[in-house]
Write a protein that binds this DNA or RNA. Structure first.
Lengths: 221, 221
DNA sequence: CCGTTAATGTACGAACCAGTACGTTAGCTA
DNA sequence: TAGCTAACGTACTGGTTCGTACATTAACGG
């Protein structure tokens, strides 16, 4: 999460714009994820940084723009993770499974990001729409999926007409739901979907599901 | 959504507790779904009813309890819908597909409910925890799934070890994500998952996915 | 037809909270 | 080392918003 580290020089200098901005973003991410957009308190964010509320307005302009900046950085992190995706050397089945597992892992490792996405959806994605960085940003994983699907189709392993965006949605659904709805699901069904003991179970369940879908003969009605 | 109808008697009487309560719940559902818990305004809810804010506190006690009451009713609606589930006469494959489709339809028909669930998760399901009606309520659909899975296993159609709660989570994931993340997904990928023209596409995609998972020979790694 | 109570309306207060006016200082540059 | 500006801090305000004190009336039971 690009967390703020102590500066290289022994004793921290008093003034460091980049560092102050990063610290505000760190704290704001947690606060927004904790309480939602309207539940988050600018004063609370300020109090948890080593600077003051004034700086939030100085650097970001306002609560709204701060939230947008938080979103931009969070999406940046997942983009970076997906950039480093290297599965092209695997056979299509193994490659898809690997991709699904990486998505699974990223969702689990970044619950704050999931919450931010939930919050942004409550507000109709208006901050993404207002952001220059985030419009139609897509996802690096999409290109990977496209290539794997193509090669899987060629070799006759996969059913012909599966769309890359749809498959991405399918994989994301499972990973997202498990983290996002952890609390209501747990309260209603008495089962913690993010229980570490069940991690491998759900991880392979996702892979099995996707592979089964891609390799099934689409006959049985 | 148990919407409020005009009373039977020709001219509405001034005082009607049940009706006032129901109207408050209707409006509150929309307002909470629109803006989230903290974003929702009690004054706004009051303004949109034919009564006053005083009544909200009179009947529900406060904003927090009002939200809980809204959740309770929303969950009640889906329970009712699932009660009327009649798929036992179908063969296991058709029965599961039908169940998945009904879940799909209910999610699509009740976006406000989906939003309320998202909001409740942002707040750690604390209202469900505080509610007597909603603790470990489960879901009628679960029993149906259990029975279908058992008969599917017996007849050798389904792979042995699939858990009913897990399957319910799998089906819900897809349905939930499509509605809940409609806005961010649309903004980032330029595809509207709830586009009516794509409805049948995603509906059958869900069914195919679930059936493929249940009927796959769990060998190919 | 009268009393009782559930139901309703009005007006207000107190706390909270996003945002800002104004003042100060660190640190670079010439 | 003087001067300039980016970076920072303090204190406050104006509007908002949940909640309530107090007043009132409808409708039913006896």
């Amino acid at each position: 999460m690009t967390s703020v580290e102590e500066p290289a020089r022994p004793n921290g200098r008093i003034r460091d714009a980049a560092r102050t901005k990063a610290e505000i973003l760190d704290v704001a991410t947690r606060e927004f994820a904790r309480a939602g957009y309207d539940g988050a308190r600018v004063d609370e964010i300020a109090a948890r940084t080593r600077t003051t509320k004034r700086m939030i307005y100085y650097y970001f302009g306002g609560k709204e723009q701060l939230f947008t900046a938080v979103l931009e950085r969070a999406y940046g992190v997942i983009r970076e993770a997906e950039q480093g995706l290297d599965v092209e050397h695997l056979d299509p089945v193994a490659a898809i499974r690997r991709l699904a597992e990486l998505t699974f892992d990223h969702h689990e490792a970044h619950p704050d990001f999931i919450r931010l996405v939930s919050i942004e959806n409550i507000h109709g994605a208006e901050h993404i729409a207002a952001s220059e960085k985030l419009g139609r940003i897509g996802s690096p994983a999409l290109d990977v999926i496209r290539r794997i699907l193509a090669s899987g189709r060629e070799s006759g392993l996969f059913t012909a007409d599966v769309d890359a965006v749809d498959l991405h949605a399918m994989i994301s659904s499972f990973c997202f739901f498990r983290v996002a709805n952890r609390h209501t699901f747990g309260a209603l069904f008495g089962r913690d979907l993010v229980d570490p003991a069940q991690r491998e179970h759900y991880r392979s369940m996702l892979g099995d599901m996707v592979i089964a879908y891609l390799t099934a003969d689409r006959a049985p009605r």
